[in-house]
């Protein structure tokens, strides 16, 4: 079993936004790993590890499209426990989601992977596209927004609990497949791989990179490809027309009675 996990670096979403003319100023930004990709790697590791035993049930490969000298996020995921990395050396900020999906799909094909795990979106652009596009390009079944995941190794299938607007939808998909994960996939009992005891309680959240893990990550293999070597010509069908800060919130109104409030909600805000 080979699991490919997509990972991306983004400007730290906790920093306040700075603008430079018509664009966001990232010149002094700290670049960090996308949180949903941390959940994706955690998911893959929980699938691969057999708690209480040394054997591993899967190889976990992290894949990132980024300049090859800006790979700290890849090291971080290797330090968490991924086995090796693949970098597609390119300026991802100049690419659209379709190009990124093509690159990911091609890596998946060449590596002969069985499962693609992605975070449901990246926190910078909140596109939520790559996993679905890659599934289309690979012509594989997909389950997006996974909150729970059970791997039935006998049937070579995954049962995925998807968080949808009106509840949780449970789907079973055969492998190979594509899964995108949501926040709750890192709750203590969300992932079951059929080997680790079903009642095993994982720590809440994605694991942190330990100092030992960081040092070991330096020795792990990371292949670097160019888009050309993968046979993908970067294209951008999406152009940024401009970036502006959202309008400041106007001051609220203080009303003198509940009745006035209800009237305003009906007639002005039109939400009732």
């Amino acid at each position: 079993m080979k699991i490919l996990v997509t990972v991306k670096r983004i400007p730290d979403p906790d920093e306040s936004l700075k603008f430079a003319g018509n664009a966001i100023d990232t010149s002094s930004s700290k670049w960090v790993a996308n949180a949903f990709d941390e959940y994706a790697v955690e998911t893959a590791l929980r699938m691969a590890e057999h708690i209480g035993n040394k054997d591993r049930l899967a190889e976990v490969i992290v894949c990132s499209v980024c300049p090859k000298d800006k790979r700290q996020h890849v090291t971080q995921f290797l330090a968490m426990g991924a086995d090796r990395g693949v970098i597609v050396d390119a300026d991802e900020t100049a690419m659209d989601s379709q190009t990124v999906a093509k690159l990911v799909a091609e890596v998946f094909r060449r590596e002969g992977c069985d499962l693609l795990v992605s975070g449901k979106l990246s926190q910078d652009s909140e596109g939520n596209e790559v996993a679905q596009r890659a599934a289309g390009l690979l012509d594989l079944p997909q389950a997006s927004f996974a909150a729970t995941l059970r791997w039935d190794r006998g049937a070579n299938a995954l049962t995925v609990g998807r968080e949808v607007d009106d509840g949780v939808e449970t789907k079973t998909i055969p492998l190979p497949a594509v899964v995108s994960v949501d926040l709750r996939i890192v709750l203590p009992h969300s992932v079951k791989n059929g080997a680790t005891a079903d009642d095993h309680k994982y720590s809440d959240g994605a694991r942190l990179a330990s100092l030992r893990g960081i040092t070991m990550a330096k020795r792990k293999k990371v292949d670097v490809h160019t888009p050309a070597a993968l046979g993908v010509t970067p294209s951008s069908h999406v152009a940024v027309a401009g970036v502006t800060a959202p309008e400041k919130r106007a001051a609220g109104q203080i009303v003198d009675s509940a009745q006035t409030l209800v009237n305003k909600l009906i007639t002005e805000a039109k939400v009732l």
Binding site: Q72, G205, L208, S210, L211
Partner: peptide, 21 residues
Amino acid sequence: AHHDRETFDLYVDSVRRLARE
């Protein structure tokens, strides 16, 4: 000699997150 800036930054980052979270 076996360390580099990346190791330093990643370690500080892990501890900072444990501290905050």
